[in-house]
Amino acid sequence: MTALGFLYPGHSAEDDYPRIEQLLGSDIRLDVVHTDVGEEAHRPDALRRMGSEARLAAGVEELRLAGAESVVWACTSGSFVYGWEGAHEQVRTLARTAGMPASSTSFAFVHAAQEVGARRVAIAATYPDDVAELFADFLRAGGLEVTGLKGAGVITAAEVGAWGEEEVFTLARQADAAEADALLLPDTALRTAAHVAALEKELGKPVLTANLVTVWEGLRLADRRVNAPNLGALFTREPIVQV
Rank of each mutant, 00 (worst) to 15 (best):
201 K>S: 15
209 T>C: 07
188 T>M: 03
185 L>K: 04
204 G>L: 10
167 E>T: 01
210 A>R: 02
173 R>N: 02
214 T>H: 03
167 E>N: 00
200 E>Y: 08
166 E>M: 03
191 R>E: 14
188 T>L: 02
219 L>K: 05
205 K>H: 12
190 L>I: 13
156 T>F: 07
165 E>M: 03
152 A>F: 08
147 T>D: 12
189 A>R: 13
183 L>W: 01
221 L>I: 03
185 L>P: 05
191 R>Y: 13
157 A>N: 13
217 E>Y: 01
204 G>A: 13
230 N>V: 14
171 L>E: 05
168 V>S: 05
198 A>H: 12
160 V>D: 02
158 A>H: 11
180 A>H: 06
206 P>I: 00
171 L>H: 00
150 K>Y: 14
177 A>V: 14
198 A>N: 14
165 E>P: 00
204 G>H: 08
201 K>C: 12
175 A>D: 04
202 E>C: 10
220 R>W: 05
178 A>K: 15
201 K>I: 11
189 A>N: 15
171 L>W: 00
195 H>C: 13
190 L>E: 05
198 A>L: 13
205 K>V: 09
223 D>S: 10
199 L>C: 04
169 F>G: 01
189 A>Y: 12
180 A>C: 11
192 T>D: 09
157 A>K: 03
219 L>E: 01
177 A>K: 13
196 V>F: 10
180 A>K: 04
209 T>P: 05
183 L>H: 04
171 L>R: 02
147 T>Y: 09
215 V>D: 07
214 T>K: 04
176 D>V: 10
212 L>K: 02
215 V>E: 07
155 I>G: 01
158 A>V: 10
174 Q>K: 12
152 A>R: 08
149 L>A: 15
176 D>Q: 12
208 L>F: 06
159 E>I: 03
190 L>R: 07
149 L>V: 14
223 D>R: 13
200 E>S: 11
230 N>S: 14
187 D>E: 13
230 N>A: 15
223 D>E: 13
181 D>V: 04
182 A>G: 10
197 A>H: 15
193 A>K: 08
198 A>W: 12
186 P>D: 14
228 A>Q: 08
192 T>S: 14
222 A>Q: 11
185 L>W: 04
181 D>K: 00
173 R>K: 09
162 A>N: 06
207 V>L: 08
225 R>V: 09
225 R>W: 08
222 A>G: 13
168 V>M: 04
150 K>D: 12
224 R>T: 07
217 E>R: 08
164 G>Y: 00
222 A>P: 11
227 N>M: 11
147 T>A: 15
153 G>L: 01
179 E>H: 06
203 L>W: 05
151 G>A: 14
211 N>I: 00
180 A>G: 10
175 A>S: 04
198 A>Q: 15
207 V>R: 03
173 R>C: 06
162 A>Q: 03
168 V>Q: 00
157 A>Q: 07
189 A>I: 15
192 T>A: 12
196 V>W: 08
186 P>F: 06
183 L>V: 07
150 K>T: 15
216 W>F: 08
187 D>N: 15
219 L>D: 01
178 A>C: 14
228 A>V: 09
212 L>R: 01
181 D>W: 00
227 N>S: 12
203 L>G: 11
219 L>V: 06
212 L>Q: 03
224 R>F: 09
224 R>G: 01
149 L>I: 10
185 L>D: 01
229 P>H: 09
